[in-house]
Amino acid sequence: MQEFKSIEIKKEEIVPLAQRMREKGHRLVMIHGYVDKEGKHVVNYQYEVGNCIESYKVVGEDTLPSISEIYDVAAAWPEEELYELMGVKFEGLKMRGRLFLPDTMLEGQGHIIVTPLEELRKKTLKEGE
């Protein structure tokens, strides 16, 4: 049967723990977060160790070190999500702007959708003449 173990850790232990888990070949299942009843951020680093989820909980921190250098996108996406949905900052995380609903969706060149309307209008008028 599936098991679950919750362990509270300090912010300083996050990176060494991730390195140890990586070396042992354990998968980072997910980084979950929520705000507790006292209004503190709770961030859970959950690793798959055999049939058990080991959940390492960090409470009351607004800035945490990123483990995306260790776990690549498996950590980067949850960290981006936690930043955008809860405001937890991750030091060392390379943000690309917004992961959810980017503001810069229509930036680009050469495509009809990203060509400014004024230019399209000029082009259409020229072709029509």
Binding site: F4, Y34, K37, Q46, I53, S55
Partner: peptide, 21 residues
């Protein structure tokens, strides 16, 4: 309590982390 349940859905692992008070 809290628990993380996992199920192998058609596309891979579905994860539900549930916290109750």
């Amino acid at each position: 309590g809290e628990f993380t349940a996992r199920h192998e859905a058609p596309r891979g692992q579905v994860i539900y982390y549930v916290v109750t008070d």
